[in-house]
Design a binder for these strands. Structure first.
Lengths: 210, 210
DNA sequence: GTCTATAGCTGGATAGAC
DNA sequence: GTCTATCCAGCTATAGAC
């Protein structure tokens, strides 16, 4: 599985094969089929395994987060770490492969779900005593953050400078959201009205639960 | 080139080959090498061509946009249209391939640059008489939007429901930003101070130009 | 469990007929 | 410009030795 992740990371979904993976792992190609049945199943298992490891590794760090800007800071750290061990890019490669290979889709969705659940937990805690908690769709935001992260890592692969600029712009946006958090109840009512007028007020989520 | 885009869209970067592309185009496989030299060069040319076409097709629509929520609306339309003709997913596949095949990187970066330039123009116009124009990094935001869009489309391929929820959460965020736009100069000063305190104030960009 | 060997296929790329 | 024919490398998957 480590060989599979390494191959996905360094050679991409297009170059992944039983042979390239076996070479990375220093074993024979036939073992892929003996242990996993097919290359797709190995990729699925490896990706789930890798995501579990990485999410667990970040869970401790994320548990200390108590504000949006801190969460943003962890995101920047994760982005930095990606240059070294590239776990998000592995997920991106699996997602790319899953678009046209349905066998890979469940594993990709599951791996993403692990990250989403973690982000959702943090987000809910961070927004707990914020006026935004009642008005924002936290599960939707968690999904957005994870999806966007994938896009940023792919962009970083072809234009590092551009991606760096994109990341810092998002950091600014985060600060902006914190500013809104600190506004009084009048502005908060204005926000709710505006959201409702735009038709974006969600029908499900924490406040709508019976 | 149309055959290349179609193959990239329906079969993904992992299944793209001179043979599969030629079959999609209804021609012989050898023509790929006669006209483009290699599969990678064909993919690069096709992707640039496709991006030019799509950006041009949306330029007219984007020129009518005069607010953030309208821009958001166009984004939602584009996202819907992707289900039918899937141009962004082609870009995502090329980005995935470019991570480990440097020959594809320039084409992927160029295609993205076309979208970024378009979004940047709209963003600058939309924010022209907003207090946010002076404080936000517009080029960085344009890059963020494009990168995030890529991630959303990939996510949509493995979890349509989750992606839909992510998209509507972002729509909420857009409304939130508009709210901030409508705040008075006091809140604006507060925002600037907050950004500066966080160390996120950009050193380059429109306001810093001599 | 791990290896070699092999079948049968698909891949990039070229030569050469038309 | 487009085709057929071809080379050889690499692919998945299996059979069978150890």
């Amino acid at each position: 599985m480590d060989g599979a992740l390494e191959t996905l990371r360094t050679r991409g979904i297009a170059s992944v094969s039983a042979r390239t993976i076996a070479a990375a792992a220093g074993v024979n190609q036939a073992l892929v089929f003996y242990h996993f049945g097919s290359v797709d199943e190995l990729l699925s298992a490896a990706c789930t395994h890798g995501a579990r490891q990485r999410v667990a590794a970040y869970a401790e760090r994320l548990a200390t987060v108590s504000s949006l800007s801190e969460l943003l800071q962890v995101g920047l750290e994760l982005h930095e770490q990606e240059r070294a061990d590239g776990n998000v890019i592995v997920l991106a490669q699996l997602l790319a492969g899953a678009q046209s290979e349905p066998k890979l889709a469940p594993a990709a969705a599951d791996a993403l779900a692990l990250w989403i659940a973690e982000i959702e937990t943090v987000l809910r805690r961070v927004l707990a005593d914020s006026p935004l908690a009642a008005v924002l769709d936290v599960p939707g935001l968690a999904r957005s953050i994870c999806a966007a992260f994938i896009g940023f890592e792919l962009y970083d692969g072809v234009d590092g400078d551009g991606a760096a600029r994109a990341v810092s712009a998002i950091a600014q946006l985060g600060s902006l959201i914190e500013l809104v958090e600190d506004l009084g109840p009048a502005a908060r009512r204005l926000l709710r009205a505006k959201l409702r007028r735009s038709g974006f007020e969600r029908g499900d989520g924490p406040s709508g639960r019976p």
